[in-house]
Simulated scan of single mutants.
Amino acid sequence: MTQQGDKGRVLIVEDSPVIAVDAEQRLQDDGWFVVGPAYDMDQAIDLAKREQFDAAVLDLNIRGEKSFAVMQILHERNIPFLITSGYADWSMPEEWRDRPRLQKPYKLGSLVGAVCELAGADQPSDG
């Protein structure tokens, strides 16, 4: 059995506490150390600037504000990230269109698999 954090560190930026806690628990169960979750943009920007992590999961819309500022920080730090959203219309600036995405609601196994792929870690044993 892996210990918490064996696979690396992942930042979660998600304004829904239910989704954030579920994602955090599932990632921890798979051996990740979770940074955050950040529930608002100020906290997300702060964590993106000062913390060390191997990958990030960003909700596109955090309390009515797009998470583009966090994306820019992660891009500048060469940290891979995944964008999630519950909106059917994913209008994105050109610079972020090639980033991996997950449509909400997503299966937690899909989230873990995507994070593993981003960070180059072993895939979860349960798929």
Rank of each mutant, 00 (worst) to 15 (best):
A121H: 10
G36D: 12
A23K: 00
G127T: 01
V112R: 03
E95D: 12
F81M: 02
L74F: 10
S85P: 01
F68L: 02
G113H: 02
R9Y: 06
S67E: 00
A38I: 02
D40P: 00
Y87N: 06
E65D: 09
C116I: 02
K49S: 02
D15T: 05
Q4C: 10
A56S: 07
I62H: 01
G86A: 07
Q4W: 07
E117P: 05
V115A: 13
Q52R: 14
W32P: 01
Y106C: 02
G64D: 01
G86D: 10
A44S: 12
P124H: 14
R77H: 09
Q3K: 13
K107D: 15
I62T: 04
L11V: 04
Q72H: 15
E117W: 12
L11A: 04
E65W: 05
R77I: 03
D46K: 07
A55I: 00
D29Y: 08
A121S: 14
A119Q: 04
A121M: 10
E95S: 08
L74W: 10
D22C: 13
Q103T: 11
S67C: 10
V10I: 08
T84N: 13
G120V: 15
L58S: 03
V21W: 09
E76N: 14
S125H: 10
A114G: 08
D89P: 01
D29C: 11
K49Q: 11
S16L: 08
Q4I: 14
I83Q: 05
T84D: 15
Q3Y: 13
E94M: 11
G86P: 03
Q43L: 01
L111I: 12
P100F: 08
E94C: 05
P100A: 14
A56Y: 08
